[in-house]
Nucleic acid binder design. Structure first.
Lengths: 129, 129
DNA sequence: TATAATATCTGTAGTAACTACAGGTGCAAG
DNA sequence: CTTGCACCTGTAGTTACTACAGATATTATA
């Protein structure tokens, strides 16, 4: 049983984030010491690890709630997990495509711009009309 | 001189967004009718257009403030505009790289998962340990 | 002209996913 | 025993909006 600060250090997360995840129901309410300090078990620590890794992989809190919902039923299947993951991968692919398109546009526009110390930049002209 | 609703329609923006941009100082305070309704000139409309196009191109409000600061001095140079734009392009390139790395990881992980109606998905196992 | 239906006005609250702060205890070391 | 850090709580701030409530204004229809 470790305290919040140790858990934060052990998982490389922010101490406030842990309280936040508890508040929004991603983490179970932990045990408490006699004086009210939170005490985390190894299972608590694993669950936080899962949450943090999923967040790093770009899953939203809503998606995480879905995944944890499956995990918490204890009889989730590969198919269910894969559905969430596949959707997420598609979302990411879409974001990548959007950003690429955006970058192409900006590259093209900034190529119009001489980048010299002259006034009336064509980039601004283009955006302002 | 058009009113806020018409401006929103003309620029394809949300009527509330216009008030928001005014509040945070991206748009100048417009003229008002005798009864207090906002009245926008063609210049106002062009400025909003600039803001909206930059937002579509992924510029943050802070970056926009910088660009508008330049534009408002009336003697901005190509070099100054290009500096902001180039930084932004680099930020986008970084985001693309991050998302691609993320997608590769997820692709790899979900390949481990059979996607069948079997329990104990290896994807969850991997994330939970 | 009267009334009904929009449109606009204001301030404020909600969204996502945290982060930071203030003011108050608990605990461990010197 | 007291100094200092960790922890407790609730709340406010962040980004870029969006939505609402309640009050006027304007426009359209009868």
């Amino acid at each position: 049983m470790i305290k919040r600060g140790e858990l934060a250090k052990a998982t490389g997360s922010n101490i406030e984030t842990i309280r936040y995840y508890e508040k929004i129901g991603l983490l179970h309410e932990p045990d408490r010491s006699a004086s009210g300090h939170r005490l985390y078990s190894l299972d608590d620590q694993k669950r936080l690890g899962f949450v943090l890794r999923c967040r790093e992989l770009g899953f939203s809190i809503a998606e995480l709630r879905e995944l944890l919902g499956l995990v918490d039923t204890k009889d989730y299947t590969c198919a269910e997990v894969l559905a969430v993951t596949t959707q997420h991968i598609e979302d990411i692919a879409k974001k990548i495509a959007d950003l690429k398109r955006l970058k192409r546009t900006l590259d093209r526009m900034s190529a119009e711009c001489s980048g010299e110390a002259v006034p009336d930049c064509p980039l601004v002209e283009a955006l302002f009309e």
